[in-house]
Simulated scan of single mutants.
Amino acid sequence: MQREELAGWLRLAWSPDIGRPAARRLLAAFGLPQQIFAQAPEALGTVLPHRQLEALLAEPQGLPALLDATWAWLQAEPGRRRVLTLGDPAYPPALLQTEDPPLLLYAHGQPVAEWPRAIAVVGSRNPTPQGRENARRFGHSFAQAGLTVVSGLALGIDGAAHEGALEGAAEGQLATIAVVGTGLDRVYPPQHHDLAHRIAGRGLIVSEYPLGIGPLPENFPRRNRIISALGLGTLVVEAALKSGSLITARQAAEQGRDVFAIPGSIHSPQSRGCHELLRQGAKLVETAQDVLEELAPRAAAAKTMDAPSPSREERPLLEAMGFDPVGLDALVARTGISAADLQAQLLELELEGLVARLPGGLFQRQQLA
């Protein structure tokens, strides 16, 4: 992105009183922001009411400083720091399908050629010890299965899920995505500074908020729609009845995603939110495998079908596996495929019922009738 293009997007996104719906109408009518701001007021008035037109024609206060800061931030780590716009081919397709996609998405971490299949894991900021361990274990198992874990970098369940994903992900795999409610020039909560650094190294941190925005309370519920949209489903590990995790779960359901909940003690306030979700139709899960099996149809539908799938007999990985249990290292040696790519292929085969995951990190090809 060139500096002039970035300036146009920043001005459109942060013009007061415009809002995302009006900005999308302008983009649909006139094209990129530079073209919008080149229009005569009369033309813009065919899309905007008078109050919003006046706001659009006035340059937002502080725009030059924001542009300078954002440009410097991008240049500090080219390729690893990006601003993705609605017009960018690298913008997450799952967000484009939601009612209110961000105009801009700031990203810091591994470059993403294709957004991975993911699962959102959320929950209480004050979990029980068992809840924290469940989040870590589920995150670890999902990453081992080749899924990217999406969460919000908050204390408690979010942090544990990120940690588990980092532990379970193969080398080169996009382990986890943290969707935060601040600008990417700061870390909130500050206790997660080291965790954020590790996520940026092996995953991705994203935000719709510009640099300089601190932890404003109203921004965290808003970012939850991004967490739920990036996942094939949302797992709530522990949550009180008024937890923000229930907002994420509701948004996931509204977006057509699966909602999963782990049951807990009837005496624990941190279980009541999950029990309420279960009463509303969320899927009860006890293991990561329960989630993987439920996601199988959605994962298959989400898979890009650029070419006809090879028949079962034609898949080289199945042939390399044979029918005896085999570990990931052995498959790397047999096929020459990277561990990260193997994890992704094994997940596809597992979801199709062609491969079973065994204890001890082993996989076994399934005999078909």
Rank of each mutant, 00 (worst) to 15 (best):
E54A: 13
F37I: 14
V326A: 07
A299S: 07
P78M: 05
P215H: 12
T234I: 09
G203M: 04
Q366E: 14
D100T: 09
T182M: 14
L317F: 11
D100K: 13
T70A: 04
R136A: 07
P316A: 15
R132F: 02
L6H: 10
R137Q: 13
P221N: 04
P64Y: 03
H267T: 14
R357C: 03
A249L: 03
A200V: 04
I266H: 07
H140E: 10
Q34I: 04
R51K: 14
T234H: 00
L57V: 08
G156M: 01
S151C: 00
T85K: 08
H50Y: 04
S309L: 15
R225G: 00
A296E: 00
T248G: 00
S338T: 15
V285E: 04
R365N: 07
R357P: 00
A296Q: 10
E276Q: 14
A29E: 04
G168I: 02
L95S: 03
A253M: 12
I337M: 15
P297G: 10
G327H: 10
Q39V: 10
H108F: 02
R365K: 12
A344G: 08
E5S: 13
Q61S: 15
A301I: 09
D324T: 03
L155N: 00
D17T: 07
F30V: 08
A118E: 04
R24F: 09
A169D: 05
R272G: 01
S243L: 03
E352T: 12
P116K: 03
P221R: 08
P21C: 12
Q367G: 01
R136V: 01
P297E: 07
L174C: 06
L368S: 05
P129E: 09
F30G: 11
A299F: 10
I199M: 11
Q255H: 15
